[in-house]
Design a protein around this nucleic acid. Structure first.
Lengths: 247, 247
DNA sequence: CGCCTAGTTGAACTTGGTCAATCGGAGTGG
DNA sequence: CCACTCCGATTGACCAAGTTCAACTAGGCG
């Protein structure tokens, strides 16, 4: 690992290099990307639908999510992002973004200029594939969510979502003893799974009653991962993780 | 348009160049891609979940769709593809595909070797962005489907899906007088929108009764596009079409 | 202490699912 | 040409998961 392993880009490099072996030079180039580190406020969209951004957002600490609204104002959360993710990398090639991106407070992100990214992969062509791949994995997660939200009952949907978060947070080293920090509201979980917040509350209680999870404040402790996977019909293939756990 | 405008790749070139102005040389390179043209049989998957393909599939005539199954065997259709689409372009960078790809009979596709695609965009770097962009647009459609299937009632879901198909088929010149050919079963429409086939039948009848559409065999005739868009809360931004209609 | 947000609970209600039977049209073999 | 078969479309009756509305509780913070 390069010398500056505590630079803002650490999670990103860790994540990208875990699935595509990079040379030290390429890793260093990623670390050296100019980045504007910004701690975000509550209720402040990072990107708004209709924007034409000239930069991308890298999650450094905490979570972000992308969402869309129907004309009637119902919110669907389309994806959650963990440290190391670049939620709006697609804006590099799609002029107008059609989604909104918001942080889950507290959250710190790094803004990277599109032109710096383009310079990066023109100089290191293999990094094109790495970044492209990053967008493809997010598309793969979208597909799994379509299956999850379209074909599974509410209980299974939540179980599946929790399995996914456990795996993705493990991959960047943010899980200990099957426990992770998840500072989202029940209403956000509901909008991610396409159920009402009242029902989300009941489903959470059911998962607790069945001994699959335990929550303390915003900590989620998975008590029985095997049962949780089974309940959600979870198969991690779609996450395209190589080994699954960061060192 | 290059001389061989009736080559198998015509729809693809038409589609890709409509959103990213290409030089004649780049268009010609796309036309010249080696391709194995295959008319498909009924009930024959093109790609199966778990495969590690060394080629991509370009839709030439008809439709294809990707789907996933839950462990209980329920099918969710994740995307529909029209001529010019490359449904499994992601396999270029994701080793194991996690989805299955199937044709809607009758259907003809062209298989393009991954190495030929790589050679193409190494020689014409701007085409990297074009292909990357293609995968990003599909991801954008996935997001809209998540919103559609998660937040809208069945009637609106179907209206939205029909609007999308009308726009995408228009973009490749396959719509005349607001009429297009859609050789899918009601059961497939149901699995795409996450409702039961019985209910899909009723929703279709409702759309017909309300005078929004008319069907004759597998032809769909949109009678009132404005009302259909309104019913589905349809906003075409996510399709990232430049002008929307092919010449 | 009071406010505000998120979480929790109960009860009535609705959308859409399930089951089961029937219809209809296209292809097939006699 | 006709009977047979098969698959998809259609219909009706009943059922259940999840929504909606409304009230109430609990925790964090100025």
């Amino acid at each position: 690992m390069p010398a500056n392993s505590s630079s803002p880009g650490t999670f990103m490099v860790r994540k990208l290099s875990s699935i595509f072996s990079l040379s030290d030079e390429e890793k260093q180039a990623l670390h050296d990307l100019p980045m504007q580190v910004v701690p975000l406020e509550r209720d402040q969209d990072i990107v708004r639908a209709g924007d034409q951004p000239s930069q991308c957002c890298l999650v450094l600490e905490g979570f972000t999510y992308v969402y869309k609204l129907t004309l009637e104002g119902q919110r669907q959360i389309l994806a959650l992002h963990v440290p190391g993710d670049i939620p709006d990398l697609q804006s590099l090639h799609l002029k107008v973004v059609d989604i909104s991106l918001a942080p889950i407070f507290p959250c710190t992100v790094g803004f990277i200029q599109h032109e710096d990214l383009r310079r990066l992969y023109e100089r290191y062509p293999r990094l094109t594939a790495v970044l492209w791949r990053e967008t493809l994995v997010h598309a793969s997660i979208h597909r799994e969510w379509l299956l999850n939200n379209g074909q599974r009952a509410a209980y299974a949907r939540l179980a599946h979502l929790l399995c996914e978060l456990l795996m993705r947070l493990s991959a960047v080293g943010l899980v200990e003893n099957d426990t992770f920090h998840l500072p989202v509201t029940q209403s956000e979980l509901a909008d991610a799974t396409g159920i009402s917040s009242v029902h989300m509350n009941r489903v959470l209680q059911a998962l607790r009653a069945d001994g699959l999870i335990e929550t303390q404040g915003k900590q989620v402790h998975v008590l029985d991962l095997e049962k949780l996977k089974q309940a959600g019909g979870f198969d991690p293939l779609y996450l395209q993780l190589e080994d699954g756990v960061a060192t």
